[in-house]
């Protein structure tokens, strides 16, 4: 009897898994982990489930979530972008510098953020596809270049005094919900549509899966790869803008080691580290897991040093589990 019940639970699980994977492109395990984590946090802290705190989590997740979109595109397409956090910092400084130092209006600040991000992504893509330098090295180099440039532009200081229009993008609360949460959800929906349902998205997964297959099918492999790095740069620019607006300043050290969290979120969300599989919706659940983890540790007053360690450990664990499952599926 017990055995039968177990078998049917098992069967129900695989069916649910298939539906979740095929229809919504979400890894069921990650959803379960998110709910469990939320349950534990709610049990440990009475504040966790308050509307204010849940909005806080979404707000804190917004920047990481937007970066995780970029990580998902690049990684599922068979690439890697380690420069996401640095480029995010550079974008924030570029926006603040444009508005404060140059005295240009807020829309120019937005353009500067997004432009700086896309420019960095463009350079990454050119170097990877034309110079033939491995993505790991190109984007590791960009991690240093972008961070250094942010420090040069800002002279190593935080740039204060943003115009109010820009600040609204980070601190505004239309309908009582922080503006970054709207930006985050809007970006995620567009990105999910693009990756899961358009030809561009399908080609991305096929390219990450097998470059030979993509070439044989007549896809323009190099051009597609470059587009993926520009998309990653754009998300870094958007994340930089949101972060800058939220803290009301251009901080050259913003986004330090955020690529670690963003990549972790993407992997937890079911993105194959070696390409061929990935889902933006999954990455958003991954980002929420990271957000809840950080928030919960904050509520429990755990030192932020330990949080870094937790994120690093989760990344390794997520890849470990993913690889085990991949081996299981092949066998």
């Amino acid at each position: 009897m017990a055995r039968f019940a177990l078998a049917s639970i098992d069967h129900g699980w695989t069916v649910a898994q298939r539906v979740a994977l095929e229809r919504a492109h979400v890894r069921l395990e990650s959803l379960v982990v998110l709910l469990l984590l939320g349950g534990v946090m709610a049990f440990l802290s009475p504040f966790f489930l308050s509307v204010g705190n849940l909005l806080n989590i979404l707000l804190a997740t917004a920047t990481i979530g937007i970066l995780a979109i970029g990580a998902t595109f690049v990684i599922s397409g068979g690439g890697l972008d380690l420069s996401l956090g640095s480029v995010m910092g550079l974008a924030g400084v570029a926006g603040a510098w444009t508005c404060v130092t140059l005295g240009l209006p807020a829309p120019m600040g937005v353009a500067a953020c997004l432009g700086a991000g896309m420019a960095a992504g463009w350079i990454n893509g050119q170097l990877v596809t034309r110079a033939g330098v491995p993505a790991f090295i190109v984007t590791l180099g960009m991690l240093g270049l972008a961070r250094g440039l942010a420090l040069v532009i800002s002279d190593g200081r935080v740039i204060y005094g943003l115009p109010s229009g820009l600040v609204w993008l980070g601190q505004g609360r239309p309908f009582g919900v922080p503006t970054p949460v709207f930006i985050f959800i809007f970006a995620a929906l567009i990105a999910h549509y693009a990756l899961a349902y358009t030809r561009f998205g399908r080609h991305t997964l096929a390219l990450g899966d097998s470059e030979g297959a993509a070439r044989a099918a007549g896809l323009r492999v190099e051009r597609h790869r470059r587009a993926l790095y520009v998309i990653a740069g754009l998300t870094a620019g958007l994340a930089g803008m949101v972060f800058m607006a939220r803290v009301n300043s251009g901080d050259p050290t913003a986004g330090m080691s955020y690529e670690l969290t963003a990549i972790t979120a993407a992997i937890i969300g079911g993105t194959n580290l070696f390409g061929g599989r990935g889902s933006v919706l999954g990455a958003m659940i991954g980002a929420l897991i990271m957000g809840v983890l950080q928030n919960g540790l904050n509520l429990m007053a755990v030192q932020s040093y330990y949080q870094q360690m937790a994120i690093g450990a989760v990344l390794i664990l997520a890849v470990f589990i993913d690889q085990r499952q991949a081996r299981g599926a092949r066998a």
Binding site: Y193, T198, A206, A213
Partner: peptide
Amino acid sequence: SLAGQQDAASNIFLGREPVKRLFGLIPGF
């Protein structure tokens, strides 16, 4: 030259996927 993680239809139609409008509105599906 197959993409091993994609299904049969995705491989057969790779590079030539037919598209439609979702709800007659959003293009490129």
